[in-house]
Design a protein around this nucleic acid. Structure first.
Lengths: 128, 128, 128, 128
DNA sequence: GTGGTCTAGACCACG
DNA sequence: GTGGTCTAGACCACC
């Protein structure tokens, strides 16, 4: 697993950890039944505080993506793949929702919003 | 000016004030040479903290959209219209750009992105 | 609000805080639209660490029982009453579920389980 | 002995081992004077950590249910049957008692408590 | 003042 | 070794 944490991009570190694990599961990089790295080991390799990893892991448990096997570690649940795929879309949807709110406050019409979007889809196609 | 402040939508209140003034200027609702409401009066009509209004105003000054007229108040600058129009587009465009990049990282196709957007345009229309 | 925290009864402190607030809401002791005590003030009156209170509050937010008003505090949501009533039942249900698991491991039949329960319902009626 | 260990149900594994041995004794499946399996062999057949079995056995000794026979293994004591029968009822009864108290604090009626119980008996029958 | 995030370090139960 | 909980104290954005 190749995780990259950027502590100053606005997205909380624990959220980045959460997403990258969920993403790896959605992509098949991690599979149901496998264990995810221990809190301590991941904290060490990412050079962040174990509590921060633990918080991400707790959230993964709350979302039933992972389940604790006492004294052993955290195991990826059977339904994790579906949940993580859904999660991805939810995140994008949420981000869009925020932009639309901002655009509405800028008094842009729905039509204008769509035009800007299509523009940017083209602009970012090769630029990325 | 018909401002609507929503303290529950995640966007900082001062930012909402800033945007709505800036975009009223871009739209011609407010014109160069006019004064904007005093901190206290706007705070009162919006039922928010004066500090919050003051912060928005400070930012408008920093961006040269309004100028202090000693002993009188804040006046909309001559170049404000241009600045605000540019700003409006820049903000929304950049926000979209970021979401699209995120969506692409989630391997959504352009078609899927547009679908989510249209969905959210409907979802957020009257909600909240 | 009269909260009592018992740090050594097995139930995590943050969970006790969560439940007692949820309970107060379910009972009408706290009403939608009201603010709950600040993290720091509650931590002080309960003589526990603010982070522990914050954790309980975060969970209340995750469960949509409370929502953040930036820079102001946490407000009880409109749907909180329903959620908290449901929560209460969920907790009891969960507790029963655990006992039943234990009873099954003890090779008790469903019939025996029910008998013990009815017994205890009578036993605890006045004893409490 | 047909033991079933479920590492996902929240009950500590050593506790599951303890209970199932104790209740096999209460049921007559195991009789005083017989030996219980060695730590290693039971650990192997249950596919769990020997330390975990050892812990359960230590607890059985502490409770005088089994006794060490030097160089041979652990033998079920004469008084084990009585102890285990008493234990079985005590554990379940007390657990129920606690839940009922909690349920009463949530102002559930006796009728509602019974309904939840019956619900959960069905829910947990084959699940998990 | 408010909550949100992060770090550091301790102690516990469990395997 | 594993995760779970709690404390202490720091820094941030926001109102």
């Amino acid at each position: 697993m190749f995780f990259k944490i950027n502590p100053h991009n606005g997205v909380p570190v624990y959220e980045q950890v959460y997403r990258q694990i969920a993403f790896a599961i959605a992509d098949g990089g991690l599979r149901p039944g496998e264990m995810i790295p221990s809190v301590r080991s991941l904290a060490k390799t990412l050079a962040i505080n174990p509590n921060t990893v633990a918080r991400a892991y707790r959230q993964l448990q709350d979302d039933s993506i992972v389940e604790a096997v006492r004294g052993t570690g955290l195991e990826i649940s059977e339904k994790a793949v579906g949940l993580c795929r859904a999660e991805r879309i939810k995140i994008v949807r949420q981000a869009f929702s925020e932009v639309i709110v901002a655009a509405r406050q800028s008094r842009l019409t729905d039509r204008e919003i769509k035009e800007i979007l299509e523009d940017e889809i083209l602009n970012t196609r090769k630029g990325k």
